[in-house]
Design a protein around this nucleic acid. Structure first.
Lengths: 197, 197, 197, 197
DNA sequence: GATGAATGAGTGTTCATTCAT
DNA sequence: CATGAATGAACACTCATTCAT
């Protein structure tokens, strides 16, 4: 039943099916046939909307990255308090948003990272993402710390966030967002406390 | 010309070829044929020494895990100072040992993690590994902190170590061990400083 | 905006796009999608004007055959001299007409021949074409030669023309029409010279 | 039932199956699956002995070219008479050898020519073949004719041979070797007759 | 112990064709 | 008239695995 203007609908549909497939069987076994079946469409449609499987993977990653960006952006927009601490908290919270700590997203991120080591196009995407977190953190720390201190604080907090996320993802249990945030907040506060010195 | 005692030699040979293959083309494209070629042996020999490909992958992971354990163990054995701080430093240093922060090891760990999400046998291995780091850290923190504080400190430091490692691995550049260790040491000291309170 | 009388325009458009596609990528890779793109129309239109891909191929062949017929016909019509030699020269010249010795035409003829071996409908077309050349030649030779001599001369000259054309097409270089014609003229004259005997 | 030293046997087996497949359904439909079935082996074996389908096609072409070379070579070796005319006759006969004028060979040559227009590696093979015939003919004509005459005679005879072959192949009927040879011999003699002039 | 020939299921991808709009 | 979304079969190719030697 062909329709016009199906492109955005089908793309979303296929991206969600990809996340679901990776969640179920892993990226290695997430074949086009499985993804198409989960989406309820034919195999061939994928090359119609994405050039090939890599195109679909890349689009899926961009989807996750956009969701992450939005999570952070929304929280920062809603701040009544413009202090560095408030912004940093918003960034931390955004990184542990429900859109990022569910099974499909975590498994896809993980597989994406592993794959990106050998695919230049994916590696570029991933570096942009990594840099964005560092950059956002550094920017806020810089408002109260020296350049060197801000950079170190940003590096540490970025690593802590990713590490908490990673260990949560690998644990196999449900992600304990509260606990992760408390640990990140504490690190943030310890770094901000250098301000007086 | 049949030989005796070839088993350990061949196994090492194949494990190293696996690491090299994953480094070169990623786990997805590390076929048995490639691994055998890199090892300079025939395809068929792999099922002779390992049950199948999964067996080889698992053995490779155990190899990396054993190397990590040894890195930490050796440093702790060489300590003249038995203080918690000295032990924690040794654990941190061991986790950033040269055997862990080189290309092949980092790429294999990453791929291993991604794969482990869908292979119970690998997942078990990976949980043991994760728990060992936490457990070691917690044990030392406990000597000077309350149980809750020690647990939080261990969770945070474990996440920070993994996060530094992860971001280093994904950056594509050479790993800056010095910088990573400084950040981890600082976190360790900030946590140990709670002792007085 | 529906128009009337589009049929002949569209058909010509698609036949030319087919020749262009075969010239660019060969008949094996001349997909409907490529032909439609080259023609600047949608995929679906092709089945609207031709039953299917075979229909388009057959129409393209008929187009080339018609162009060949016309090349010969025009030259014979323009003759002031009604001698067998003049007619034979016209036939030879017509077969090396610019419409036949350009890249797209030569590649399409070649592909057509190869394909025709396994498609009865194309094979019929091709036999008609082959026979027309022989028949035209034989008819003229007959005016001055015995039946047997005429037939042999016609067979030889037809083969020589096709062979010159074939070797020219396969060479990859631009077709040397002058040289080919001289060789064919010489053969023609040698055959006509039997007249006296 | 794996054996050692199967390579030459399997390669011959697969080349013959390729010729048979092209004869039956044409090169366009001669799929790997069909060729493997005709050879009585599995699909995968083809990439084991030839890199890919192109490798098999190229090997098949080299097989036909070698057979042609041998046909000519054997006849020239058997000559008791070293005259140019004897050599030229041997070359003509060799080109109409039974190994070249049977259905599978003719259809494969035709398809090969069509394909070679868009595959550099095949085109190179084909040019070598074309040049060999011209070169052999020219060499013999040169013994009795001027350089220009020899070249023209060689060009003409090469074209005549190929043309006779082509028209025979396309006719669909059995190849009339006798008739073709008579026509070629006559052309040869007419050219050699220029010697006195 | 070690080889490499052989298999055959599975992959991503292409493509002619159909058809609702 | 014309589009382009959608299909699904067919394709070349890959690969872990088996096993006779």
């Amino acid at each position: 039943m062909p329709k016009v203007g199906m492109q955005p609908i089908r793309r979303q549909q296929l991206i969600h099916a990809t996340l679901e497939a990776v969640d179920q069987v892993g990226m290695g076994d997430a074949s086009i046939a499985l993804i198409a079946r989960l989406a309820g469409v034919s195999n061939g449609i994928i090359s119609h909307y994405f050039q090939d499987k890599n195109g679909l993977i890349a689009a899926t990653m961009r989807h996750l990255m956009a969701a992450l960006s939005e999570s952070v952006f929304d929280r920062r927009l809603a701040l009544s308090d413009d202090s560095p601490r408030a912004h940093l908290q918003a960034i931390i919270e955004g990184n542990f948003d429900a859109s990022q700590v569910n099974g499909p997203a975590m498994k896809t991120w993980l597989a994406f990272w592993a794959t990106s080591m050998h695919q230049p196009s994916l590696h570029r995407l991933q570096r942009i993402n990594d840099h964005r977190l560092y950059s956002n953190l550094c920017c806020q720390f810089r408002r109260v710390l020296s350049l060197d201190d801000a950079r170190n604080a940003a590096r540490g907090l970025a690593a802590l966030i990713d590490g908490l996320w990673l260990r949560g993802a690998l644990s196999g249990d449900a992600f304990d967002t509260e606990q992760a945030q408390q640990i990140a907040y504490e690190y943030m506060d310890l770094q901000l406390a250098k301000q007086a010195s």
